[in-house]
């Protein structure tokens, strides 16, 4: 009896040692720093399913919403770097530490605490106006905004939020002044525009597409490097001579210090996952264009994006400096 027990224990121990060196040997947690139903969540779920197939371990989504993503982001930034706690973050990841700096707050996390694994999707935003506004092009919009300097208003998804930054980039580049009406999310920002309470907002293509089709909103200009497939008639800032670009993107991160073999295994798995036909069809269904970039390219992309966003945050500055 004792022998059997010892034998079993030894076998277990051997299994354990074996488990230690082969990543992944247990389920992986993918932290989504936003509530269910948001962009990060609806991108994260199909990614987790496809990743599961590629890596042969369950990938569990854990929503840790709070403080515009800061709660979940800092959780992963400070997690054990063993590859079992990963992050599905949005572009706002670069904004939060900058805003913390602006307000002399103890930062919830810093960008160098995270390493990029892969970019999953990126979608340029679109500027939409209420159809009662007598403008059909960017030139007309700028002319009107100059004539009514400081009188026109736009809604945002929240101060320094994903749908506030691109508008500030535009206002800064065109040297315009407008009133920012901050709301608490992308949905409310569109609702308040639909009711005609503000004149314009910035929207994700998927969120505004049906309203544009129904004539409730008019698209004016996009932030992409080239025209958006769903809005081929809408020009970009780039073609109109403004050097501004902005994307809402979703990417996967791991804590800094994650061993090289682990990140390599993850990168290989994500590469396979984004090629998965089920993943592709799910992403197409939710109108989220797959924009896969492997770690080295994603790191470059992220650095450039973080720089643009940091400039925008500092251009906005603190609210009271405007008064």
């Amino acid at each position: 009896m004792t022998r059997i027990l010892i034998g079993a224990l030894l076998a277990l121990a051997a299994l354990h040692v074996h488990a230690q060196d082969a990543y992944p040997s247990r389920p992986i947690t993918l932290i989504v720093p936003f509530p269910p139903g948001g962009v990060a969540d609806i991108t994260g779920r199909p990614t987790a399913i496809a990743l599961e197939k590629a890596i042969r371990q369950p990938v569990v989504i854990a929503n840790r919403p709070g403080a515009g993503g800061a709660v979940g982001n800092s959780l992963v930034a400070n997690a054990k770097p063993d590859g079992y706690t990963l992050l599905m973050a949005l572009s706002s990841i670069s904004v939060i530490p900058e805003a913390d700096k602006l307000f002399d707050r103890k930062p919830a996390y810093t960008l160098d605490q995270l390493v990029p694994i892969a970019l999953i999707s990126a979608d340029p935003t679109i500027l939409v106006v209420h159809p009662s506004l007598p403008v059909k092009s960017l030139q007309e919009l700028i002319a009107l905004a100059k004539a009514k300097s400081g009188q026109m208003s736009y809604s945002t998804s929240g101060i320094y939020g994903a749908l506030h930054m691109p508008m500030e980039m535009f206002l800064h580049a065109a040297n315009l002044k407008m009133r920012a009406v901050h709301t608490n999310g992308g949905g409310p920002a569109i609702t308040i525009l639909l009711g005609g309470h503000v004149e314009m907002t910035v929207g994700g293509p998927a969120a505004v597409a049906s309203h544009v089709k129904a004539g409730r909103l008019r698209p004016i200009v996009g932030w992409g490097a080239k025209r958006h497939a769903a809005f081929p008639q809408v020009p970009t800032f780039k073609e109109l001579g403004y050097d501004i670009e902005y994307y809402i993107w979703a990417g996967m991160f791991a804590p800094r210090g994650t061993p090289e073999p682990v990140t390599k295994a993850l990168r290989d798995a994500v590469r396979k996952a984004v090629d998965d036909p089920d993943f592709k069809s799910t992403m197409a269904k939710i109108d989220s264009p797959i924009q896969y970039l492997d770690a080295p390219e994603f790191a470059k992309y992220w650095a450039a994006d973080a720089k643009r966003l940091a400039e925008a945050v500092n251009a906005v500055g603190r609210a009271e400096d405007h008064k």
């Binding site: 509530p35 269910p36 949905g187 639909l194 597409a209 049906s210 129904a214 409730r216 269904k285």
Partner: peptide
């Protein structure tokens, strides 16, 4: 009727139908 969530509950329900490729909205 408009694809506008009135709160977090309806927002999650909208997400549930969007995953199936149905775009909420006036149509």
């Amino acid at each position: 009727a408009l694809g506008i969530p009135t709160g977090p509950i309806t927002a999650v329900m909208l997400a549930a139908i969007m995953v199936h490729g149905i775009s909420p909205g006036p149509m």
